[in-house]
Each structure stands twice: as C-alpha cells, then as structure tokens.
C-alpha cells in the first residue's frame, strides 16, 4: 500500500484517474406503440473523485447504490450520460471504440463472480493469454512462457495451463481472473466485489495477493466491496456511495473511525462486531440512547 494521500501528491503531473460530475442514467421505457421514456434510474448521479498512481480507492455503499455502474461508466464499458473521465490527463469519456482500444490495455476489471466470468469451454492458458494474442503482444512459445509466469505469480502452477475452469475452486478461479486482468500489464485495475463470493479463509488470501501485486507492479486499484472491513484493509481512501452520489470521501481509517456523513454513520453502525463483549456493549448503548 502506498502512502499517497488525497491531496495531489504530484506524481508526474496529477492523478492517474480523474472523474468529474459523472452521470449515468438508465431510461425506464413504457408505451404500447412507441417506446416512450417515462422515467430514469439515476444509477450514477454526478460523482467526482480522483485516484493517484499506486493508490487504492475503496468504494462502499448498499446494494443498488451505483458502485458497479460507476466502475463501468469510468471504464467506458457503459456510455456515460454526461461528465468527464480523465486517464493520465486525457479525456476518455465519449471516445469511440477504436480510440479506446489502446486504453483498454491500461485499465482492467476483476469481477465478483469467479464462476460466471470465465468461459467454461476455454482452457486456463487461453483465458489468461487471449488478450496477449489478440493484441499481438506475444505468440507461440513466448506467449506460453508469459502465461505460465502469470499463473505462478497469482499462486497457481504452470501445470494448470491446460485445465478447464470447472476443475478449480472459487478462490483458484478468482486467481485465474486476476491473472487474466494482469496479462496486459494494466496501470489501473477495477476490482468489483472480488472476494464476496469466496470463503472467509480464502478471502484473506486473495486480498493479500492483490496487496502484493500492487507493491510489486505499482498497480492502482479501485476496490468495490460490501464488506467495509475488507475495503478499509486494502484502501488508502474510501468513497461512500448512496443513491448514485458520493456522500463522503476520505482517508480509509478516518472514514471508518470518524465518519462525518449521517449515511456513513448508519452504514458503519450496522456492521457486525465480531466480538461478543463489544457487540453486547454496543447494543446496550443503542438501546439506552
């Protein structure tokens, strides 16, 4: 984890990612003859944040608050309704497919569901190496060597190259997803609930792996999870989302220990304390006051 704070520590001229007034509305349509737009889901409703190089920005909020939509709109996997997204100072909102292609290498995503996000008919080697091949970065023997090295780096073994995803456990599949995301040596990685589907004992393994990879490769993360404890552990800064808006941003410990916003307070108060004496004490405090 880096020590880069919120204030623009000048790292080669500003933050890696700058998001300003980003909006993503989904139309709700109805009508018999014409699809008339009757209303809008304001999934992301004007959010601004920036992420410095080497830093982890955590995103928390209840289900439906717009976290995944925000990630997708920043990555231009969804066309933003309005707003600005700058990557290394360059405006990328509204760019076409062709112009986005070189940027796709720099920004990758790791998904929540390690089962659904891997093609079951492809071998692990193919899944991890596909983009290297498509983007003509490596082929033949070199491709194989690179993929095997990636597999080892994420805690799998080179012998896994020819296996299929169903032969792996949830944690191992998430490692495959991580190897795939890292194949193109991205600068920025969006992790959308990367550990939520995993067993407790495996969650810690994956969080530690992501931590190591960041140190080694100088990665920058945007990390989404509903487990606030995990987000706080991995993040330098945290943004709290509610109804498509960011209600509070700050240093991770600061937000968790001294929340300012009422919604953040409510969210934190609901997190179970895994300590019976503490949770009894908290219950007594809340029933008393």
């Amino acid at each position: 984890m880096s020590d880069l704070g919120a204030s623009a520590t000048t790292n080669g001229g500003g933050p890696l990612l700058e998001v300003a007034d980003l909006v993503k509305h989904f139309p709700i349509k109805s009508g018999l003859l014409f699809d008339r737009e009757v209303d809008q889901v304001r999934a992301v409703d004007g959010i601004s944040f920036s992420v410095n190089k080497g830093e982890t920005m955590g995103l928390v909020g209840e289900s439906g608050s717009g976290k995944s939509t925000a990630c997708r709109a920043v990555l231009q996997l969804l066309k933003p309704t309005s707003g600005s997204v700058k990557f290394e100072g360059q405006e990328i909102a509204g760019l076409g497919r062709r112009e986005l292609r070189p940027l796709r290498r720099e920004m990758q995503m790791i998904f929540q569901d390690p089962y659904a996000s891997l093609n079951p008919r492809k071998r692990v080697g193919q899944i991890v190496g596909d983009q290297l091949k498509i983007q003509k970065i490596a082929s033949g023997k070199e491709l194989r060597t690179r993929v095997e090295a990636l597999l080892e780096r994420v805690g799998l073994s080179p012998e896994h190259y020819n296996r299929f995803p169903h032969e792996f456990s949830g944690g191992q599949r998430q490692r495959i997803g991580i190897a795939r995301a890292l194949a193109l040596e991205p600068k920025l990685v969006f992790c959308d609930e990367p550990v939520s589907a995993l067993d407790v004992s495996i969650q810690a393994q994956i969080v530690n792996l992501l931590d190591d990879l960041q140190d080694e490769l100088g990665l920058t993360y945007v990390f989404v999870a509903h487990d606030i404890g995990v987000v706080r552990h991995i993040s330098d800064r945290i943004a709290v989302m509610n109804h498509g808006k960011i209600v509070e941003t700050g240093d991770a410990d600061q937000v968790c220990e001294h929340p300012r916003d009422a919604y953040t307070k409510k969210l934190l108060a609901a997190v179970p304390i895994p300590d019976p004496r503490e949770s009894r004490a908290r219950r007594e405090r809340t029933t008393a006051g």
């Binding site: 407790v200 004992s201 969650q203 810690a204 487990d227 606030i228 404890g229 995990v230 706080r232 552990h233 410990d253 968790c256 934190l268 997190v271 304390i273 895994p274 300590d275 503490e278």
Partner: peptide, 10 residues
C-alpha cells in the same frame, strides 16, 4: 482472518 473496524488494521 476477521477484519475489525474497531481496531487498527493489521
């Protein structure tokens, strides 16, 4: 392996 919000992070 539990994360604790009420304690400093390891």
């Amino acid at each position: 392996s539990l994360t604790r919000l009420d304690q400093p992070r390891p």
